[in-house]
Structures are given as structure tokens and as C-alpha cells.
Amino acid sequence: MADILIVDDSPTVLMSMEDLLRRFGHRAIRANSAEEALSKVAGGLAPKLVITDFHMPGKNGAELIAALRSKGSLRFTPMLVLTTESQRERRNEAKAAGATGWLVKPVDPKQLEAALAQLLPAA
């Protein structure tokens, strides 16, 4: 069981992802914005994985990843970007910011499970 920080401004996506992660045996910590995610990390949260939406009010996903990478505790933490099929250009932007990979929304449960198995092999 690993703590996974899930960041999205959509309550639907947060609820859906939290449920999927719970089914795969993990605990989801929700943040509805990049700012809230950064605040939680500043408060001592050290997730084993970060999954963030790209398109959010305020800081977008790439900016959040860049900010989290600057934190010493999360320098090597895997971070995935949630994108839609129409945001291919954004993936490159996220990659440049330090993202580990991306998942296309709607997230396929089997692919999420495969991603978790690769990124959290010991969890």
C-alpha cells in the first residue's frame, strides 16, 4: 500500500481515481489544485507517486511537476500527467517539466494497474 497524491480540479476525476487506486490497494490523497498539492507537500506529505491533471486553473500540471521536482524529498518520486487525447503537445511540455509518464483520460483501469506495477513494484 502506497500513498499516492492525485491532483485534479475535477471532483469526478478525483473520486474516480481515488476509487480505482483504493481497489488496487493504495491510499489516495486528493488535491483539487496544484497549489493545494504543494501545500500538502510543504506540510510533510511524501507520496510514493504523484498523478496530476495537466489542465487546471492556476498552476497547470507541468508547472506543478516542476515545482515538486525542486523539492528535495520528491526529486526522484515518479509523477504521471493525466491528459486528454487532444493534448498531445502538452505531454511534451510535461515531459520537459520532469514528468515520468502520462496517462490518457479516461484512465483505463488495466493500464493504471500496469502503470502502478511499473512505478511501485514493491508496494
Binding site: S10, V13, S16, R23, D53, S86, P109
Partner: peptide, 24 residues
């Protein structure tokens, strides 16, 4: 049933995709 529930949950994410399309 579990697969259906997961698929239903995944389908719920599509609403957010639509929102982003409209925002675009």
C-alpha cells in the same frame, strides 16, 4: 461486476474531458 464498476468510474472521467474541450 468489478470490471463494470471500474469501466463506469472511468466513463465518469469523460465528463471532465468534455469540460476541457469546451474550455479549449
Amino acid at each position: 461486476l468489478e470490471d463494470e464498476i471500474r469501466s463506469a468510474l472511468a466513463s465518469a472521467q469523460t465528463g471532465d474531458i468534455i469540460r476541457q474541450q469546451i474550455e479549449l
